[in-house]
Nucleic acid binder design. Structure first.
Lengths: 243, 243
DNA sequence: GGTCGTATGATTGTCAACAATCCGAGGACG
DNA sequence: CGTCCTCGGATTGTTGACAATCATACGACC
């Protein structure tokens, strides 16, 4: 870990990449609510770039599923339908489960646990200061770090989109979220249990806790839906989705 | 299922989407081997479009992880490193597990089993005709349909990239693959077992078979590596990957 | 002889203008 | 009165040209 450890990427990020990241952030924090049309001229002026790089960045988000493109109509931020919360959390459950497995079977568990501790401490701190936004942010940071700690490039890439969509769910259903989930203590406790199980090298418990954590979240956000038993409402019971 | 069932998408796909799909196919079937530089002028002439839409399409593949971009240097097809086969199959295992769970808990299992039967029949037919390429294609079609049958947009999108990378692995390690895995009968049998377990509503067995299937594939493609017990060689044991 | 500076060639990154398409309002017609 | 057609405005899709950057090869210098 010398001072010259991370000077290799002299090549700065591509412009499209920078804009794509900014757009992701804007979608994530609600600056671009679901359904918003992204006018190219406006955005290009806002970013102080031409329409070329901007379009390239937007195409990235299209392939990530954060934008939907209607030909000759424009690009829109996706709006989450009722079944999407189930879809998102079911996918997240799969990703985080795989990440946890990799950590438990080949990672430096203590180091990971320490990093996750930081996130949970931030959660507790946000709770004390009664800052629900910071609490949610720290919550997501916990899961993001869990996945990054797996060392899997693909899990990390896939999770990036899912965590953005998670935040979209949370801000879309903010009122429901607040009302039905008052206890931040439980939230902190749930995450601490996961960390403990990681430290104790108890893979089975880690996976069970993660699954329960996801199940809890789904039932809070979409009451009546369940990851573990049965399909989500609105899911086509008799066949495959069209898209 | 009327005759007018699927006439809704009058809007044809965006040009960038078409080119992106063509590029994906080219990468998948080996027309663009790993490490190839994608010259914009050449490709634009080949596709008979300008560089604009082409660049947009390539940015999509960058965000999907199929291309890597070096600023002012060009875009290159990713080349799979030794640890990638572990990464790919670990991610695939997670995705297909989640898809199977969704099918077992809320899908039309018989319908799914029938569709998967078609793929396996194609595998057997390819085996009889001694056509290993067709056999691999049918094999991947099996997994693709399994995931699509889950009805999850996100699982499907994430799997698309993974299946392309899987095919890249197979063609890159074709010699190894051939040598160490002569029995196509086993391959067909393994898939049939999965279908049977789906029909019998035996979720536990389905998941176990899928996991074993992935484990087998990893050990064939990267001997000495294992999904279930321990990390892959070349995986950073002490920390997180750089990228 | 080895190393460094420089010119060249090609490629990527960016931009502004042109063409195609679509939505909405307004009016004509049955 | 309802429907259809038409036109205007705006937006996206596409193009070709210009600017910036980098790799390579060659020659000068130590």
């Amino acid at each position: 870990m010398s001072v010259l450890a991370d000077i290799e990427p002299v090549n700065r990020e591509s412009t499209a990449g920078i804009i794509a990241r900014q757009l992701r952030d804007a979608i994530m924090n609600g600056s671009l609510p679901p359904g918003t049309q992204l006018g190219e001229t406006d955005l290009a002026a806002r970013f102080q770039v031409s329409r070329g790089p901007l379009r390239e960045a937007m195409q990235r988000l299209v392939s990530e599923g954060l934008l939907r493109s209607e030909r000759h109509r424009g690009l829109f931020v996706i709006d989450l339908e009722p079944g999407d919360v189930y879809d998102i959390y079911s996918a997240r459950s799969a990703i985080e489960r795989a990440a946890a497995i990799r950590i438990m079977r080949g990672g430096d568990r203590d180091r990971v646990a320490a990093m996750l501790d930081d996130a949970v401490h931030a959660m507790a701190e946000a709770d004390q200061q009664d800052d629900p936004a910071a609490l949610t942010e720290a919550d997501l940071r916990f899961h993001e770090e869990l996945i990054e700690a797996s060392g899997s490039r693909r899990l990390t890439r896939m999770a990036r989109t899912l965590l953005i969509e998670t935040r979209m769910c949370l801000s879309a259903l903010q009122e429901t979220y607040r009302k039905s989930y008052q206890g931040a203590d439980e939230r902190v406790a749930e995450h601490n249990q996961i960390i403990d199980a990681i430290r104790q090298d108890d893979e089975e418990t880690v996976l069970a806790l993660l699954e329960a954590h996801m199940e809890d979240a789904v039932q809070r956000l979409a009451p009546g839906t369940s990851l573990t038993s049965g399909a989500a409402p609105g899911l086509p019971v008799g066949g495959v989705d069209i898209a």
